[in-house]
Amino acid sequence: MSDVGFHLAFWSLSALTIGGALMIIVSRNLIHAVIFLILSFIGVAGLFITLSADFLALVQILVYVGAIAVLMLFAILLTPRAARDNEESLMRYPAMILMGLVIAAGVFVALETDWGPMREGAIGTQAKIIGESLINQYVLPFEIGAVMLTAALVGAIALARQDDEDLPIHTASLIEEGVLPPPDGDAADAPAGPGDDS
C-alpha cells in the first residue's frame, strides 16, 4: 500500500482509538462509556491490520468486542441499583498528572531510543506461524493459559452464582406466603395462596 493510503489509515485509526478512549473519560453514562470502549477496541484492531497482524486483529475483535465488551454490558445491566453514572473520584488530579507524565515519558522514550534496524516487509501466514509456535515452542505457556482460562471460568461461575439464601427479597416472601414453591420443591405441590386469581 502506498504512503498516502497508509497515512490515512493510520491517522484515522489512531484518532478513533484515542478519541474513543477520551470519550470514556468524558461520557457520563456507563453504557455510553462501554460503547466508546468498543470504538477504541475496533480502532486498535484496525491499527493491528496496518501492522499487518491480521490474525491478532480478528482475535481482538472476537475477544474484546465480541466477548469482553458484551460481558461488561451484561455486568452493568445485572447491577441495576448501582449508580449508572461514570463519575470520577478525587483521584482525578493526581491521576491527570500521572497521565501527563506517562505520555511525556512514553513519547520521550519512543523518540529518543535507537530501535536498531527496522524490518521493512510484513510476514505472511501469521496464523500458521503463531499456531505452530504455540504448540511447539510455547506449548507450556499455552497449556498454562488454557488451565488459567478454565480456572477463571470456574471461578467466575462460582463467584457469580446465587445461593438459595440470596434469592430476591420478595421471592423469599412469596415462598413464605406459599404462593411460590420452595426452590427445590415441586411446583404442583405448592399450597394455593388465599386469593389466587388476579
Binding site: 482509538t17 484515542i18 478512549a21 486498535v44 506517562v102
Partner: peptide
C-alpha cells in the same frame, strides 16, 4: 499512540 492509550 500506545503510550497515549496507556496513559488514558
Amino acid at each position: 499512540v500506545g503510550a497515549i492509550l496507556f496513559a488514558i
